[in-house]
Nucleic acid binder design. Structure first.
Lengths: 330, 330
DNA sequence: CTGTTAGCGCCTTCAA
DNA sequence: TTGAAGGCGCTAACAG
């Protein structure tokens, strides 16, 4: 360079106190030389890495595709605030207490977002709550001073699904849930089912319900079990789309007609359900909204805000897997 | 600490020349204090950031879910080699020449992996080829001294799909392709279709083919167009699963029976196609293998290897959307 | 307006 | 086997 050293720093960062001409010269030369500031070195001095971790539970087999529907929105919003996203992924069982803290300090992360897929008893959720670094947890109920929580209003979602079936004349409505004992949202979805049934004065008991595992194969298995233990049902609400698809695929192979023989509502609103055969009626998690707002919650925490809880209302996507039953008038 | 400063560094990094007892003391204390080395500071001195970028094209609307099937494998393998993954995502149109270089230098990335979704004329592919930093490009044909390329053997995949239809007695086989003029793999898939048809001595012309856009809605539209311009076809090969699903969903709504009225083969082998209704016969990209090997190719480049090209054979998943036609004997 | 100095957290000579 | 010193690329405080 012609003359100077830290003037360059000021010129590039736009601090006050640089002659206009000097600044322009620097900027010009920097461009010519293809100079790119080293973000790591910067982070070293001003303790801001501009890095945010996204923690994804790593499973061997079926992935839960809904995670990936929000990842792009998450990432985009974070970028808007000048943050880059780094993926932290590991098998849930390999997690050791305080790993979260370690992971974050290692790269000087400014915050973390924990995607769904950890059981509600998993130590990472405990750690997230205590940690005094910004963390946003998706789905699983977890809040702390520096820990916000965002998810769908699951009770409302399940309530909407079942109410829609009731409005279409169904009275004996089955429910295939996920792993109730381990996953918090399953409890809430059950509550929504229960609320809708009770408000409508409809009867149900354990024979109307099967707890499954959120996989397609599990859905197929569960519908068999449900129909066996309670052949009278006319409609089933599945706690996720994958199980609903597994069940429909199985049933049609057995000669059932959907929705003529059995009405079905899924949950998640995966974008491809629109092209399912028949197009699947489902409750749509607003993944775009959740992705964006999760990022915003994290930024809020980074700026010193306190942890809080946000629920996003899901919406019913009326499609073709529910049959309208003739209403009986008393 | 009791005594010393740079001894600690040696103790933690296991360099030779530290008394056994000293080392143990240091290690012990470090654990108690919850000490975590700062990866950024490290990267500053030894010019190795341990960071790898994954570049994902950012689209507003439908995502291509197949990308996300390989991301976990990519990430897992990279981690095995001590690399972390950072997501770099932007709308393809916002890319400016040399942004790739800038992006990498900014965070001192050791390498980059470019996921599919950029058109073959996109400047990032040009940059990737020239750059003397390790880059692995998925799908789109791009190789350089420091640039490897991995993808499915697309010709073979399409060939397998069409040959399977032919073996099942089909002779008038339609083809719904993606955007032929802009995406390289579409040209290859066409070549596979052509090869299979010609080897079997079957006739086809432009009336057998529609170029579409890889979306579900596009699939529905294309099948209408195809059946209109050529009502005699008995089978259709779709260049991706999403279009096949869109088409099946549309056809069944119109009263068609699949596969009785029309046989269909998709492409991609999305894991959820197994639960489609009926389960979709498709060509499976081995996303697990591609994800893992893409990571390994990058490591190879980082270690000084030269760019090379790898093709992974796809496999036919025989399911329920192809009808066996009675063979005519001459 | 601009140059000098010090230091972020770490590793690597070089002596002791 | 260990300590001291210097520097990675950058910014901030303090002179000039």
């Amino acid at each position: 360079l012609n003359v100077s050293i830290s003037t360059v720093s000021r010129a590039l960062n736009g601090s006050y106190g640089v002659h206009k001409r000097t600044r322009e010269q620097v900027l010009q030369l920097a461009k010519e030389l293809g100079y790119v500031p080293d973000a790591n070195a910067k982070s070293l001095v001003n303790k801001k890495s501009g890095l945010v971790g996204v923690i994804i539970p790593e499973y061997d087999h079926e992935v839960r595709p809904e995670f990936f529907e929000l990842l792009p929105h998450l990432n985009k919003t974070l970028k808007l605030h000048g943050k880059n996203t780094i993926i932290l992924s590991f098998p849930p069982r390999s997690y050791q207490a305080n790993d979260l803290d370690r992971l974050m300090k290692q790269r000087n992360l400014e915050g973390c977002i924990i995607l769904p897929g950890f059981l509600e008893s998993h130590p990472i959720l405990r750690d997230a709550k205590k940690l005094n670094l910004p963390v946003v947890v998706l789905e699983e109920e977890t809040i702390g001073r520096y820990c916000s929580n965002i998810g769908t209003d699951e009770v409302e979602g399940a309530y909407k699904a079942v109410t829609y079936l009731i409005e279409n004349g169904h009275k004996r409505i089955g429910f295939v849930n996920g792993p109730y004992d381990y996953v918090h949202i399953c409890k809430e979805r059950f509550l929504g089912y229960k609320k809708a049934m009770e408000e409508a004065g409809l009867y149900f008991d354990q024979r109307f319900i099967v707890n499954s595992d959120f996989t397609g194969a599990g859905g197929a298995k569960s519908i068999q079990q449900l129909l066996k233990q309670n052949p009278s049902i006319t409609a089933v609400f599945f706690a996720n789309d994958l199980m609903a698809m597994g069940a429909i695929s199985y049933l049609c192979a057995q000669g059932y007609k959907i929705p003529e023989d059995l009405s079905i509502v899924g949950y998640d609103g995966l974008f491809m359900t629109e092209y399912y055969n028949p197009p699947l009626t489902t409750i749509q998690n607003n993944n775009q909204r959740i992705g964006i707002q999760a990022a915003e919650l994290l930024i809020e925490l980074i700026n010193g805000g306190a942890g809080r809880r946000v629920r996003v209302s899901p919406v019913l996507l009326e499609r073709k897997t529910v049959k309208r039953l003739a209403m009986e008038y008393p």
